[in-house]
Structures are given as structure tokens and as C-alpha cells.
Amino acid sequence: MSTSQRLRFWIANRFVMIVAILVLVYLFLPVAYTFVFSFNNYKKSNIQWNPEGSPTLDHWKNPFGPPGIKDALLTSLGVGAIATLVATVLGTLLAFALVRHDFRGKGAGNILVFVPMATPEIVLGASLLTIFVQGFNQVGLTLGFWTIVIAHIMFCLSFVVVTVKARLQSLDPRLEEAAQDLYAGPGGTFWRVTFPLVLPGIVSAALLSFSLSFDDFIITNFVSGDATTFPKFVYVSYLRGIPAEANVIGFSLFVIAVLLVIAGQVVGSRRRSPA
């Protein structure tokens, strides 16, 4: 084999992996920019790098400096937590009903879960805004924190159902039969076998819910009224110039999330390895 042939073989063999790594680099490029611009020593707008000012750590010293940014972050975290909790519970119940039970209208139930995922966010936001201002205001519900929570639960619900359903469907029915065979009644079978085995699916559904809720802008923008979430804060301040503190917070959240996921994986693999 000649050298050029060998080189071609080497490249062909790793071609897919090389492309994959390039795509990952592409995914990370804007994150890197967000990080770099958190050190920008800018005068008015953080959109352009200021070549005159030397990079600064100022924005990292007091990330909650700009007015409103802290409240926006807390709102996002609060909405994310409540929406995730409710959507995960309701969605898990729904998934169990759809996989484990026979009932009239099951097909309709599946469609009801699927269609919100096939509906553009802007339509969801517009329709919710319509009903919030033309009906729910009469029962005292004004646009704000709780309307965001309601909307987020609604669009997270379908994703939870799909995730938990997939896990339930891949569960070997023999495991539950084995539990019954080993003297576990219906309750024992559920809590000792079914639930622990479905739990990883429920946890990933919850993580997905939280990240969808935390990162949502379009629906939130429609239903939030005066309340501001972190993405909305960034979007609204874009016109005036986004403070670099937003970059600090955005990048920190990214780092925290990565660390949490890695920690979760390490704990998970520890529990799987021999005691």
C-alpha cells in the first residue's frame, strides 16, 4: 500500500468522526463567543468587541449588577422548577395510562398529546394570550409569573409523556411478572420494580422539561405581561445593548449544567458498578 493510499484509508476510516467533531465545534462556537464577550470592555453596546479597552473581569465581579437581571433569572428558575414538577407528574400519569391501560378514546388521547408538539410555539403563545386576556382575566388571573407557569406546563407535558412512554414501552413485561411470581402484590410490584425501572425515563423527562422551560422565549414573550424571564431580559435589552453580565450568567449556567450532568453520570455509573 502506498503512502497516499494509506492516508486515504486513514481518512476514510475516521471521516465520520472528523465530521462529527467539526459539527460539535460548530455547536460550541456561539457558546465560546458568549464566553469571550463576557470579558469585553465595551462602552455602549456589547455587540461589538471594543479593541481599545483591554479585556476586563468587571462583569464577572458583579453579575447581578444590571437592574432586573437577578429578578429575571429568579423568575426563570422558579417557572422552570414549578413547570417541571407539575408537567413531570401529570405527564408520567398520562404515559402510564396510555401504555398500561385500555380505555375508550385512547387514540384521541395520543393525538391530544402529539398535536401540541406539532404546533409552532408562536401559535401556542398567541392562543394562550388570547384566552388569558379574553376570559381568564375575569377570574383574576393577570399576565405574569403564573400565566408563564401554566403555559410552560402545557408545552412541557407532551415531551414528558413521549419520554416516559418510550421508557415504559421498552420495559420487559417479564420483570413485573417475575415480581408477582416472587410474592409482590400489585403495590409491591409497582414500587419495587416498575417505578425504579421507569425512574431514569422520568428523570430525563424532568431534565428535558426544565431545559425547554428555562430556554423558552417565544411563548413566554406572549404570556408574560410585565414579568421577565432571563431569555426575555436578554431579548428586550438587545435593542439597548445587552449587558455583558448576561453573558456571564449564560455561560455560568452552561458550565453548571455540564457539571451537574457529568456528576449525574458519574454517580449513575458508580451505582451500576460492583459494591
Binding site: 422565549f217 431569555p231 448576561a246 450532568v261
Partner: peptide
């Protein structure tokens, strides 16, 4: 992971 840096950012 990039999800967690805001989509707007």
C-alpha cells in the same frame, strides 16, 4: 449542553 446558554444569547 449549548441549550443551557440561552438560545437568545
Amino acid at each position: 449542553a449549548p441549550f443551557f446558554t440561552s438560545f437568545i444569547l
